[in-house]
Design a protein around this nucleic acid. Sequence first.
DNA 1: TTGAAAGCGCTAACAG
DNA 2: CTGTTAGCGCTTTCAA
Lengths: 326, 326
Amino acid sequence: MTATIRDVARASGVHVSTVSRTFSAPHLVNAETRNRVLAVAEDLGYRPNRAARALTTGRTHNIGLIVADISNPFFPPLIKAAQAHARTRDYHVFVADTDEDPQVEEELIQTLTKQVDGVLLCSPRLSNRVIERLHADVPFVVVNRRIKGMPTILMDVAQGARLAIEHLTGLGHRRLALAAGPSGSWTSGQMREAAAAAAAASGAELVILGPNAPTEQGGLAVAAEVVASGATGVLTYNDLVAIGLIEGLYERGVRVPDDVSVVGVDDTLSGRLNRPKLTTVAMPTSAAGRIAVDLLLQSVGDGGTSTLTTLETRLVVRESTGEARS
Amino acid sequence: MTATIRDVARASGVHVSTVSRTFSAPHLVNAETRNRVLAVAEDLGYRPNRAARALTTGRTHNIGLIVADISNPFFPPLIKAAQAHARTRDYHVFVADTDEDPQVEEELIQTLTKQVDGVLLCSPRLSNRVIERLHADVPFVVVNRRIKGMPTILMDVAQGARLAIEHLTGLGHRRLALAAGPSGSWTSGQMREAAAAAAAASGAELVILGPNAPTEQGGLAVAAEVVASGATGVLTYNDLVAIGLIEGLYERGVRVPDDVSVVGVDDTLSGRLNRPKLTTVAMPTSAAGRIAVDLLLQSVGDGGTSTLTTLETRLVVRESTGEARS
DNA sequence: TTGAAAGCGCTAACAG
DNA sequence: CTGTTAGCGCTTTCAA
């Protein structure tokens, strides 16, 4: 059905290797010949078969990107940045969703292994041990998880939590709460520690509420506890939780930011669209996507150095926080 | 590095073809031999190279899924449903984002063509002509666009638009606006026609505003025109536009639903979390994802029958619409 | 039930 | 600058 290199060779009266060169090393072929081949190829609708090419070159020019849940608004910016950046390097990105299932994740990695030159693991759910084993077959770059011996990109959640707490105490809030994330989350652990330390340093009280589901439901559910705690400043695991919490407070007649200030994490679209607009800790997701691709292509080239890249976070003050009432 | 079929053959003292059969047609090989081969393979960590296999069989057992914008919350449920369903058929799904760019879309399809057995085109931005040309090289299933000769899944946007307009006129709104989508969008065209017809049938006026970007920015930008039009009931291209529009109206001191009623389309999470909660036309996205995979695998098998599947939509009334003020 | 041989579409030395 | 040859990892006749 589709034209192959041989069809083009035949139709243009040259050997297949000349056709091959026309596409993979054009400068090595006579301009005249090249143009003829190109014309014939165009005419036949010929496209080099990248999979076949990969068989001999060992380079597919594809990279895989694995996420736990594509519908988590945290991921799309990272994915888009990775795709866009990869394209400038003549690479294509295939995204796959593991549905939060480690088994699916492993299977997906195995499948991808031979069809891509490297894999970007974003917030993996697999154990370090399994990841290390799989790593023998394909280069990895890991985002949001520290695994020794692998290029890793971390977003500095601890710093973000600190910024948020300082923002809150700066506004005069003395009684704070943290609506923590799921118990298995590395990120949530980081937040707890950093928030506790920052609160202590400012002489404020901090109660930790949770674990909570990392969703709007989780936020809705924790609202009662927040009210009961008497906190006037709350840091949440992510924007979704913040939005749910604000909704829950609202239903109880508690106004944000008039009565209680709320800070989210991630700076997702949902947060920007919420009313009140969320004050939130922005994660450098796009940068992470770009850098991840660079690291990956680099380790595809040289076999993989283990780098740890930590990206700073940033506090975006919008409407969900305000001064404590005296 | 990775073990090949030859390594396994050597290590287990059989010919490569026997190893091959062990994996692709186990029943054709002696149980004893098979077990030995399997053991050795396991031991060597051998995995058949699917790309190489595809070279001879012509089946990659992958399908491609192309979307215009992965961060549009409309897509994730469709993607997840497609992935989950494909897995039950022993297929994997590779997702790619075109960034709303027809050129990128074409390039992506070309790349994918040889690495997958078929492609799911979701809300393509490419012209029918180009799609038809590309179709010569790989089976397609198209979602949200009618192209003759191709298996197509349509969500009945026309019906949805009708429901929305009738809802609005039923609330007493006589002056309506449609915030249309991008010019390349088939869906947007459907909405225009159906909305115009429904408005006329109810004796209401309808102005069409746009084209607009299918995003929150698009909604924000069209707010001024909506105000200028004097419309009190607005149907938008999708939830994102609705949310942006509500924000834009709010900034101009126009209240929703008190002054103006707004209806979105898609029933996304963002819409459910927005305040006011969006009245919206719910699209059967998960069903579309599942059915799309079935159709695609079917046409991979038999060469592709052209089926038209139309899925019904449903109006979800929430808080962004209310009675017209007399 | 297994082996031998050919070939999928392409690239990569090596000659010429 | 171009043709020859060999081979990437795998499947698939065809014989044995």
